[in-house]
Structure formats: structure tokens, C-alpha cells
């Protein structure tokens, strides 16, 4: 597909601004920095060269012809042309993503710096709310293990409150739905796992070296066991909106949600919290699990 005119324009203005800032620049460096071929750099420079004011009265951008022959971009004159600012959408996209990573507790140091620069220049284009529950020493220890390619022993409490100690090959920190996770190979499960950072109680960096390479398929690997259908009053709808593969349809005063279930105990725990709004649940095994958990709660809570 041919390149969009505006994409090309942004790169041309980028090359101009870059050369103005950094001084004489070899074409090869421009090609690498902007991710295009040297031939494309030449074409972009030519397009800048012939840019004109109305009536062809003045050519505001001029490069040295001698330097051009030597594959170097050397700016002779730039009469006020520069890269254009971020649009509101662009600003929200970048600041929103970086702030979400920060709120989740998985933003690198350089990210904090660039976010501060963007916020200063763009006057807070979007509000991001979040509370990072990740202890700094957990994050630092994991980053140290990753930096040195060492194994780590982590104490982990899963969503069902099961506590375990595992040795993992740590790969990277990833933000999924606003929460930070560790992507790793778990030696105990002998498989790739994502562990939620705020459920890691402690990290010990071990001497052993990482042996398992990172997986290509990032994120969750749980395979759904079955599909559930839940009828719930509108007021309880929010609890089901982020279920995997969810489809929600309006049904009079209720909604009917269908979604994938990988772990019935986990989903039953979710349903329990909105039980006063629930009308019906399918299949039976999910209903049974829900009732079993409810009875266990009533046995202890008075």
C-alpha cells in the first residue's frame, strides 16, 4: 500500500527538525532513525528542498548541494518550518498508555521521565486514576533478575488465595487491563505463566541463569473450559463487563451475559459479590460452585 501523505509529511518535518537540532547528519543515520531506506531519505530531502511559499516567491528550506552529493544532510537555511505538535488524540493515546503503565506499576524509569516531559508540554490531556499496589522492592528485584538473566524465587498468592513458592525464569513486565504482570517460565508448572505483580509477596534473585527463552505469545494462556450464561439485573452488569469473551444483551430490566470460564471457582467468587442482582446462571456446575461457596461463607459469617 502506498504511504499516506500525512505519514510522509510527518517524517519529512521530522527529518528537517532532526537535522536542524543535531547539525549535519549522514543519510544512513537519518534512514536508521526514521526507519526508512536511504533512497527514501533522499526523496524526502528533495521534497523539503522544493517546498515554496505562495507564488513560488521564496524557498524557505535549503540544503548544501555539496554535502548532499556526499550523502550528508546539511541545512543551509530553514525559515520557520518545523515538526507539528501532537493532536489531542495523539496526546491522549501516549499519555494515557504511559500513565496506565505507571498506575499499574510497570513503567520503566525512562517512561517516568518522558511522561513528565509530555505532561509539561501538553497540560494533562487525560486524567488517569490508579493506585499502584506493587511494592517497589518487588519490582526492583525482578528487574535486577531480568537485567542479569538470573532465576528468581517468588512467593505468590493466586486469585483463589492459594500461596505458593515458585522458581521462575523472569522475562518482562507487562500491563494487561491496567494491572502489571510478570511474564515468566515457571519451573514448577513447567510452562509459561503470567503472575500478577501485586500478588507477589517476595522475590529472591537466585544465582542460576535463565534457560527458557521468552514466549512469543504474550499474555494469558488459560484456555476456557466452558461458556457461561448469566441473567442479571442491570445494576449488576458492571461485574461481568470485563469477563473474557463477554457478550452482553439487554433483556427488559435485566441483561444476559455470556462469557468464557477457565476456572469455575474464580468466576463463582465474582458472581457471589453481585448475587443480590443475579437472576439465573447456566450451566449447573457453575450454580453448584456458587452455592457451595455461599454456604461456606454463611458457615462463618454471622
Amino acid at each position: 500500500m502506498a504511504e499516506q501523505a500525512t505519514d510522509r509529511l510527518v517524517r519529512m518535518l521530522g527529518i528537517l527538525t532532526y537535522v536542524e537540532k543535531h547539525g549535519d547528519t549522514p543519510f544512513a543515520e537519518l534512514a536508521e532513525h526514521f526507519g526508512v531506506s536511504v533512497a527514501q531519505v533522499r526523496a524526502d530531502l528533495n521534497a523539503l528542498w522544493v517546498a515554496s511559499e505562495p507564488g513560488d516567491s521564496w524557498f524557505p528550506i535549503d540544503f548544501s548541494a555539496d554535502a548532499y552529493e556526499a550523502d550528508i544532510a546539511a541545512l543551509v537555511r530553514n525559515d520557520g518550518v518545523s515538526q507539528v505538535r501532537l493532536s489531542p488524540r495523539e496526546a491522549v493515546a501516549l499519555v494515557g498508555a504511559l500513565s496506565t503503565m505507571g498506575a499499574a506499576g510497570a513503567l520503566p524509569e525512562a517512561g517516568t521521565q518522558v511522561l513528565a516531559k509530555l505532561r509539561e508540554a501538553l497540560a494533562e490531556p487525560v486524567t488517569v486514576i490508579g493506585d499502584d499496589h506493587v511494592a517497589p522492592e518487588i519490582r526492583e528485584s525482578l528487574l535486577e533478575a531480568m537485567r542479569r538473566y538470573r532465576l528468581a524465587e517468588v512467593e505468590y498468592v493466586d486469585a483463589q488465595d492459594r500461596r505458593s513458592t515458585r522458581v521462575v525464569d523472569p522475562h518482562r513486565l507487562v500491563v494487561i487491563d491496567g494491572h502489571a504482570y510478570l511474564e515468566c517460565f515457571c519451573r514448577r508448572a513447567e510452562d509459561y505463566r503470567v503472575l500478577r505483580l501485586d500478588r507477589i509477596a517476595s522475590v529472591t534473585v537466585l544465582d542460576g541463569a535463565v534457560e527458557h527463552p521468552p514466549t512469543d505469545t504474550a499474555g494469558f494462556t488459560l484456555t476456557p473450559a466452558f461458556r457461561a450464561t448469566v441473567r442479571i439485573a442491570r445494576s449488576g452488569r458492571w461485574a461481568l463487563e470485563d469477563m473474557p469473551g463477554v457478550v452482553i444483551e439487554d433483556a427488559e430490566e435485566d441483561v444476559i451475559a455470556t462469557f468464557d470460564v477457565a476456572d469455575a471457582a474464580f468466576v463463582a467468587g465474582r458472581l457471589l459479590s453481585v448475587a443480590p442482582h443475579l437472576r439465573s446462571v447456566t450451566p449447573n456446575r457453575l450454580v453448584d460452585e456458587l452455592r457451595r461457596q455461599a454456604q461456606s461463607v454463611l458457615d462463618v459469617q454471622r
Partner: peptide, 29 residues
Amino acid sequence: LGSDATQAVAKLASSAEHGPRVELPFAAL
């Protein structure tokens, strides 16, 4: 917003220093 984000990075590259590619152990899904 994905194409907006890509466009924004292209604009910001104009005033960024040139260096060797930096691999970060971070990701966002």
C-alpha cells in the same frame, strides 16, 4: 487510537537523540 499513538511517536522522533536500539523488558497489551 493505535494509529494516533504511532503518528505521535513519529513526530516525537524528530527531537529525540539517535542511539542504538534499546530493548526494554516491558510491554503493554
